[in-house]
Write a protein that binds this DNA or RNA. Structure first.
Length: 478
DNA sequence: TTTTGAGTTGTTCGA
DNA sequence: GTCGAACAACTCAAA
């Protein structure tokens, strides 16, 4: 008698969940499954891991919980060490599986890896949708080209995309064969990778993710429309890392929010869904233009005269620019692996426009520390801020860090939290300590140049310098 | 093919 | 303090 087909379900760091997991559900429906995760030495090398400590921590916690949940359902998450392109074909052969199922990846290196694995396998590698709401590369303008402006993309998605309802988590899983069990190698611990656990990070894992989603639905969503821009308010979802690692599927989040349309502020729901569509737009853009991770979307920006400025860079990265809201963001990033969305824009704009430093340097820095660091979205955000991206803002829009601070952090709650030396400064001066009279500074215990820096560059000067540079570069005289 | 309306998130200036 | 206009033209998407 023929045994039922055996499927290798390949979990890959962007789908660390069992709810709404297409490959798992499909595999189960048609036979037995062996859940696998590959610990690629590229990431799990101590040297390399220290370059992305926050994501490694979140990943390991999520992986640990996934293994626990899979065990509680009767199976085992088999962790394998090595390069996917070698390991997956080897075990597929040894375990006699009839196919490999995984979610499709969009990043160029993921696509290249999957092509290599598929070539090396003797059985099919089937890649299922699920990382995005809608398959990237499928929405097209009337002339058949990819969208490069958000609004028509968004309209098209809302018109055409049938966003699937999330799949339920399986209630039991078949045990894995002993030959697979023998291959299991537990993941390294954080300390084995030379990383100190950061207690300020969000906890990883599907359970914590669901808790965050519920918390957002009950507390944040209702005031999301107006509150999301306010740095000191807790009105954003904080689900970015869960989306990045797939501890929640983006479809689950879509429907959890969309279903609140009735009992929630309509505008808030719409705005949040639009944010999810922005993610789709970034993913779709990267799918259609894999070069985006290397080169500006607008070719006119290719040789933009960014400055080399080691001192300016250091001040920005360490949160010592003298502009409180910019510095608060830098501190928040390193301390917590997260930065409020509005603060990301302010600080990105400052690096590119006030300091005239290449957006790719900032992009890389964000990728190092952000727990939610996502290639498509981070790149899209930075290119938007620099002015080189898809649907970028016109170059003459230069964020004023003082005005932004006063508008979105009027009491200075955000600044006070991340810059303790300024905590006692009156709100009136919290975003421009240099403008405070000496007695005020003294009373607040602020000593400019000692416990808080003078501005690294004067706003009006920096703004004009950027405008001049952009004008000269983008519109060269005939 | 040509035309037309429109484009996430801003700032500054002057009335 | 508030308001509207200027910023600067370009290119996208659809008709």
């Amino acid at each position: 008698m023929m045994s039922p087909p055996r499927t290798l379900v390949w979990f890959r760091g962007k789908d660390l969940r069992i709810t709404d997991h297409g490959p798992l559900v499909r595999g189960l429906a048609e036979g037995n499954v062996i859940p696998v995760f590959v610990l690629d030495p590229y990431f799990f090398d101590p040297h390399r891991a220290q370059d992305l400590p926050h994501r490694i921590q979140f990943l390991l916690e999520s992986l640990e919980e996934l293994a626990r949940v899979i065990a509680s359902l009767g199976s085992t998450l088999i962790c394998l060490q090595g390069k996917s392109v070698e390991v997956i074909p080897r075990v597929a052969e040894a375990w006699n599986v009839s196919r490999v199922l995984a979610h499709r990846w969009v990043e160029p290196f993921g696509r290249a890896r999957d092509r290599q694995v598929a070539r090396a396998l003797r059985v099919p590698l089937e890649l299922l949708e699920g990382e995005t709401l809608h398959p990237p590369g499928t929405l097209r303008t009337g002339s058949g080209s990819p969208y490069s402006v958000f609004t028509p993309f968004s309209r098209s998605l809302r018109r055409e995309a049938a966003i699937a309802r999330p799949l339920p988590a399986p209630s039991t899983l078949p045990p894995v064969p002993s030959q697979a069990l023998r291959e299991h190698r537990p993941p390294p611990s954080l300390s084995e990778l030379g990383i100190c656990r950061n207690a300020n990070l969000q906890p990883g894992g599907e359970q914590a993710a669901h808790k965050r989603l519920q918390q957002f639905l009950s507390r944040g969503l209702g005031r999301y429309g107006t509150g999301r821009d306010h740095l000191g308010q807790d009105a954003t979802s904080r689900l970015s890392a869960d989306i990045k690692f797939g501890t929640l599927s983006v479809r689950s989040i879509w429907w959890a929010v969309a279903d609140r349309q009735q009992d929630c502020c309509h505008e808030s729901v719409e705005r949040f869904l639009t944010e999810l569509i922005w993610r789709e737009f970034s993913y779709s853009s990267l799918w259609d233009r894999p070069n985006l991770l290397k080169s500006p979307f607008r070719s006119s920006w290719t040789n933009f005269p960014w400055r080399e400025d080691a001192a300016g860079w250091k001040a920005w990265a360490e949160g010592r620019t003298g502009y409180p809201v910019v510095d608060a963001a830098a501190r928040e990033l390193i301390a917590t692996g997260f930065v409020h969305g509005r603060a990301r824009m302010i600080t990105a704009s400052f690096l590119c426009k006030h300091l005239l430093i290449d957006y790719r340097q900032g992009e890389q820095h964000f990728m190092k520390y952000l727990t939610d660091g996502d290639w498509a979205q981070n790149n899209a955000g930075w290119q938007w801020s620099a002015g080189s991206g898809c649907d970028a803002q016109p170059y003459f829009r230069v964020f004023n860090p003082v005005a932004q601070g006063e508008k979105f952090d009027p009491e200075g709650a955000y600044v006070r939290r991340w810059l303790p030396p300024l905590a006692k400064l009156p709100s009136r001066y919290i975003h421009k300590p240099w403008a405070a009279p000496s007695p005020v500074l003294e009373a607040a215990g602020v000593c400019l140049g000692k416990n808080y820096p003078h501005p690294v560059v004067e706003h009006a000067f920096a703004r004009q310098r950027f405008l001049d540079a952009a004008k000269a570069h983008l519109k060269p005289s005939p």
